[in-house]
Design a protein around this nucleic acid. Structure first.
Length: 466
RNA sequence: GGUCCCAUCGUCUAGUGGCCUAGGACGUAGCCCUCUCAAGGCUAAGACACGGGUUCGAGUCCCGUUGGGACCGCCA
């Protein structure tokens, strides 16, 4: 198996899904997974995109066994094959100009005829001087070609439709349809798994395999992933690169899980570990219809994976976000054990690592910022006395644990005959600045006694209007 | 326009001729739990594109229609 992206863009959701299915199939069958960069389009391929694709693969955890190979390092190999095809009469030089070809193409489309090269250069005996030719592959013109696809079954094409495609450009570089065949042969690829936008190319490639005296591999064409408007997924539909999801605080396991479920299923199961995906993945359960990318479901799944991730691990993962958000200055500023305990309270309330980091702010910084609405509602003059009583009671609590803190709260509300909410909400504002947080007793414990008392003092001042 | 592919709730999907009064999940709404927010639990609304066949029986097989998509490059 191989994943063979062209570095003319970042690793986007669609490419990642193709890579994932190749990887899952390879791992499930204990086969080899090869990464190959198809960079023969020199005008559009860049080093930056190559790096980004590799980084994206690494982040997703799609490790490869061989490569990354680059086609631009193999140009001599392709040229050898082209020469062989020409000498065997299976390919020929073509001197037609691009302008003329373009004109004929438009004409054919306008008149509703199939677009096809007219083979005018096929019978040429002498080279045309002053023109550097391309090389065309001679396609059979009668009979049928059957693509036996793992997902679609047998797909039949009439050879009459097949166009003599260009395999070598006038600048001497090979084109995709040749390189893909040569490399897949050369690298011993047994299964070609790719997007179904390649299905129409497949019969042509099959003939190139045959011309080279090789047996074509097994094909599996995956359905496309569409945006919410049911057109092909693009930048307009959100993140362009999978790395954007990393930066938004998504877990690679969640993205992998989501992508796997786009077009594949295992009964009613929604949440999978990587191991489960490898174990369960087969093409029997891959669907044929295109699917729409649903960011809400990905977000939910990310939340589920966060809940299933050990707090110690989350602590490591969230630290870069804490730094990025300016909550801490460097990664050693915060105690990992304490951070893990803080994360336990926030784990089921965070759908992304970014959200988790932002919620951790009020545990870490010295002073919280009050939300205007929350302050107006809960830090009012009539609460000052209540908060003061709590402050004094709390100062004697030792150890400062949620359990002991709760006992203090219970005794105060019982004495005063008030509901817990009447006390908890103002304290919540004092501790977090807002009205939504984990349970107030745990919040106090995590904040710690000294800081909690300081925050209460400040809240009391604000309440009493000082 | 030509060729090819596809078609179950808004979305992802289960379904491989009788287990389907079409199941699950996201999202939406309501209720429960509750110190707030989540998480969790329960409930609700919500789909077999249409028309013909085949069959005792069709979401499932066949044909057509409609709709969507891909490709038709000296891009991959």
């Amino acid at each position: 198996m191989r994943f063979a992206p062209s570095p003319t863009g970042y690793l986007h959701i669609g490419g990642a899904r193709t890579a994932l299915f190749n990887w899952l199939f390879a791992r499930h069958n204990k086969g080899k997974f090869i990464l190959r960069i198809e960079d023969t389009d020199r005008s559009r391929s860049t080093e930056e995109f190559i790096e980004a694709i590799i980084e994206g693969m690494r982040w997703l955890g799609l490790d490869w066994d061989e490569g990354p190979f680059r086609q631009t390092e193999r140009l001599d190999i392709y040229r050898g094959y082209v020469e062989r095809l020409i000498s065997e009469g299976k390919a020929y030089y073509c001197y037609c100009s691009q302008e003329e070809l373009e004109r004929k193409r438009k004409e054919a489309m306008a008149e509703g005829r199939p677009v096809k090269y007219d083979r005018r250069c096929l019978s040429l005996k002498e080279p045309v001087s002053g023109v550097s030719p391309v090389v065309r592959f001679k396609m059979p013109q009668y009979g049928q070609t059957i693509v036996d696809d793992l997902i679609r079954g047998k797909v039949v094409f009439d050879n009459e439709q097949l166009d003599d495609l260009i395999i070598l450009r006038s600048d001497g570089t090979p084109t995709y349809n040749l390189t893909v065949v040569v490399d897949d042969v050369d690298m011993g690829i047994t299964h070609v798994i790719r997007g179904d936008d390649h299905l129409n190319n497949t019969p042509k490639q099959i003939h190139i395999y045959r011309a080279l005296n090789y047996e074509p591999p097994v094909f599996a064409h995956l359905p496309m992933i569409l945006g919410p408007d049911r057109t092909r997924l693009s930048k307009r539909h959100g993140a362009t690169s999978v790395l954007a999801y990393r930066d938004m605080g998504y877990l690679p396991d969640a993205v992998v899980n989501y992508l796997a479920r786009l077009g594949w299923s295992h009964g009613d199961q929604e949440i999978f570990t990587r191991q489960e995906l490898i174990e369960f993945f087969t093409f029997d359960n891959v669907g044929k219809a295109a699917s729409v990318f649903n960011p809400e479901k990905l977000l939910w799944l990310n939340g589920q994976h966060i809940m299933n991730t050990p707090p110690e691990r989350l602590a490591e993962l969230v630290i870069p976000f804490l730094v990025r958000e300016g909550i801490i200055k460097d990664e050693d500023e915060v105690d990992r054990g304490w951070l893990s305990r803080a994360i336990v309270t926030l784990r089921e309330r965070s759908k992304t690592l970014l959200e988790l980091a932002r919620s951790l702010r009020y545990y870490i910084v010295e002073d919280v910022e009050y939300e205007e609405k929350a302050k107006g509602k809960f830090l009012t003059g009539d609460r000052a006395d209540l908060l003061l009583e709590l402050r004094h009671a709390l100062s004697g609590v030792e150890p400062f644990t949620a359990q002991n803190i709760e006992a203090v709260f219970r005794s105060i509300i019982e004495k005063r005959g008030i509901k817990l909410g009447a006390l908890a909400q103002p304290v919540r504002v004092a501790m977090t600045g807002g009205t939504a947080s984990p349970g107030i007793f745990e919040v106090l414990e995590i904040v710690g006694k000294d800081k909690a008392l300081r925050r209460l003092d400040r809240a009391i001042k604000v309440s009493s209007g000082q």
